[in-house]
């Protein structure tokens, strides 16, 4: 349900996360867990967009920002990939769905 294309996601508070953006990689430290995560290319891009999106972003909005292609069948693959990244972020305490 939370990975529905319309649900908005946001990065957890900047008080909890610290990060560095190096070329294609983002390294994130989660103060709440004490863990450090190296995000790959897609994960890094999704993280950058979540951090930069005031009020969060939906899967649809994230996919639209990642591809230049018009909405179509290929976007289903992108949506699944982004939903997978967000699910990982939720597990790692880096992002959460806005269920309000």
């Amino acid at each position: 349900m939370v990975c529905s294309p319309k649900v908005r996601w946001r990065a957890v508070s900047a008080d909890v996360l610290a990060w560095r953006d190096w070329d294609c990689e983002v390294v994130v430290f989660n103060q709440a867990t004490g863990s450090t995560h190296l995000l790959g290319e897609l994960g890094g891009e999704v993280f950058r967009r979540l951090v930069g999106a005031e009020g969060g972003a939906s899967v649809d909005a994230l996919v639209a920002g990642l591809t230049d292609e018009p909405t179509g069948a290929d976007n289903a693959d992108w949506s699944a990939a982004v939903a997978g990244v967000l699910s990982d972020f939720a597990r790692l305490g880096l992002a959460e769905p806005d269920v309000s």
């Binding site: 560095r20 070329d23 294609c24 990689e25 983002v26 390294v27 004490g34 450090t36 190296l38």
Partner: peptide
């Protein structure tokens, strides 16, 4: 990459998380 360099340092740290 710097990201991998940092992760290797973190993996070999004694008190980094603390």
């Amino acid at each position: 990459s710097k990201g991998r360099g940092l992760m290797h340092m973190a993996d070999n740290a004694f008190n980094y998380s603390a």
